[in-house]
Amino acid sequence: MSATTWAIVAVVVQVAVVVVGAPFLVGLMRQVRARLEGRAGAGSAQPWRDLRKQLRKEPIAPEGSTIVFAAAPFVLLSSLLLITAAAPFIATTSPLDGVADLYAVVSLLLLGSVALALAGLDTGSAFGGMGSSRAVTVAALAEPTLLVAGFALSVRVGSSNLASLVEHGQRAPSTILSPATLLAAVALWIVVVAEAGRLPVDNPSTHLELTMIHEAMILEYAGRDLAVVELASAVRLAILLSLWGTLFLPWGVATTAAPGALALGVVGLVAKVSVLGAVLAAAEVFMAKWRLFRVPELLAGSFLFGVLAVSSSFFLA
C-alpha cells in the first residue's frame, strides 16, 4: 500500500482509538478515584455499559423545545470527530492537517460548547439556563489563555499547524524544556481542566443541580441523545488530554505513514493519555470544587502564564 493509503488508514485508526478509548479513559479515571478513596469501583468498562443501556432507552424532548435541542448532541460529536480526524495524535501525516490548525481546533471545541449551551437554554428550565450561562462564562474566559499559549507555541515554529508543532518538538527536544514551553504547558493544563469540566472548576460526578455546570446543561437529555452527549463529553476529555500530551510530549507520534510507526503511535497515545488521566484523577481526590466566582481568578492566572510564555519566548530566545 502507498503512503497516502497508510495516511488515510492512520486517520481512521486515530478516530477509532479516540472514540472507543474515550469512555475507557473516563472509566479509568473513576477507577483511580475509587481506589484512592478506598472503594472497589465499577471497573474501567462501566461507561461503555452505561452507554449501551442509554442507547436502548427512549429519548425525551421538553415541551416547547426546538430542533436546536435535538441537533445539539450531533453537532457536538461531529465537531469533535472533525478535530480527531485532523489532529496529529498518532501520526503527523493526516491529509486533513491543512484543514484545521490549532486555532481552528480551538474554535471547533468552542462550537461544541456553544451547541450544548444553546440546547441548555432551549429546554426552558432554570437549570438549563444556569448551566448554559456558567459554561459560556468559563469558555469565554478560557479563550484568551488558549490563544496566547498557542501563540507562545507557534512563535518558534513559525506555523500554527499541529503537525508542524509536533514535528518541531520531535526534531528539537530541547525546546520543550525551554521556559516558554513550560509556562505554556502550565497555562494550557489549567485550561484543559476548565474546558473538560473537571475539579476545581466543575464536578463531573455531582448530583446537586445548583452546583453543576455541564450536568445542568444536559439535565433534560435522555436515552440515545444522552448517550451521544455522554460519549461526546468523554471524547472531548480524551481530545483535550491528547492535545496536551502531543504538544508537550511529542515522542511516539509517527512522522511517516508506515505500519510499525503507526502501531507505536497508538501505543504512545494510549500510554500518554492514560497516565495524564490517572494523574488528573489522583489530583482531584485532594480537591474540592471552587466557588464559580473564583474560577475567573484561576483563568486570569493561566492567562498570565500564557503572556509570560510569549514574552519569554521572545526575550529569552
Partner: peptide, 20 residues
C-alpha cells in the same frame, strides 16, 4: 506557514453529523 479550510470544516461538520 498556516492553512485552514472553511469549506472542508463545514463539509466535515455536516458529514460527521450525518455519520453519527
Amino acid at each position: 506557514a498556516g492553512s485552514m479550510s472553511p469549506l472542508l470544516i463545514a463539509l466535515g461538520l455536516a458529514g460527521g453529523s450525518l455519520l453519527v
